[in-house]
């Protein structure tokens, strides 16, 4: 399969993430590994952010577990294409379970950005939007422009899901913004913020 270049994409990942998080309200956010952590932390180090700073393939299902436990709250996943591909079966499970309050945003740079920008499968023809749609996600979207992003915001934040959007972005990543990396700290801070109880 021919390798498709992503040089045609113009969206900047950090601006996209900031734009989405501006309207988060009381939503909880679960991030994937790598750039997603920095993108989300750079918007605001909200206690309702769970940074999965060191695990591949778990973000969607961690968010699903939160979504079941917190049915009245929106749960957003901000992750990368490589991270989601490492747990691709999660899309089938979530498609079957139909959590209405779960939105997955894939910031797709078509590369493993943390290890030297090797191609992921999304740069070689694999269509995550198609996989989500075929798995039963209520709504899906491919976002390549600011106008498309703007149009999807209501579905990301408010409309019944499960929802998945792939946002195609330039491969360049922005400066590293360190999020708290101690898992016991971020997990207990998150749990206290979303449940109102101390852990």
């Amino acid at each position: 399969m021919a390798t498709k270049s992503n040089t045609k994409y113009t969206l900047q990942r950090r601006k996209v993430v900031h734009r989405i998080l501006e309207g988060r309200g009381d939503a909880a956010v679960v991030t994937g590994i790598g750039n997603a952590v920095h993108d989300v932390a750079s918007a605001n180090d909200d206690p309702k952010n769970m940074y999965l700073a060191g695990i591949m393939g778990g973000a969607a299902m961690v968010a699903f577990g939160v979504a079941l436990a917190q049915p009245k709250r929106r749960i957003l996943v901000i992750t990368g294409d490589g991270e989601l591909l490492a747990g691709i079966g999660s899309l089938a499970t979530i498609g079957v379970e139909q959590p209405k309050n779960l939105s997955i945003i894939v910031i797709d740079n078509q590369a493993y950005g943390a290890t030297g920008n090797q191609h992921t499968h999304t740069g070689r023809g694999v269509d995550l939007v198609g996989i989500a749609a075929a798995s039963g996600f209520k709504k899906t979207a491919l976002i390549t422009t600011n106008a498309e992003l703007q149009a999807e915001l209501p579905r990301i934040h408010n409309k019944p899901g499960p929802y998945l959007a792939v946002v195609k972005v330039m491969s360049k990543s922005s400066a590293r913004i360190d999020a708290p990396k101690d898992g016991t700290y971020v997990s207990r801070r998150f749990r206290a913020a979303v449940t109102g109880e101390s852990a």
């Binding site: 679960v30 778990g58 961690v62 079941l68 079966g89 997990s187 449940t195």
Partner: peptide
Amino acid sequence: SVVLTTEEEGVAQMAGAWLGGQ
């Protein structure tokens, strides 16, 4: 009850359950 495609999804889900208070 949630059927998984692979067991690692379940570990992640259990983390989320606890994070969400269940």
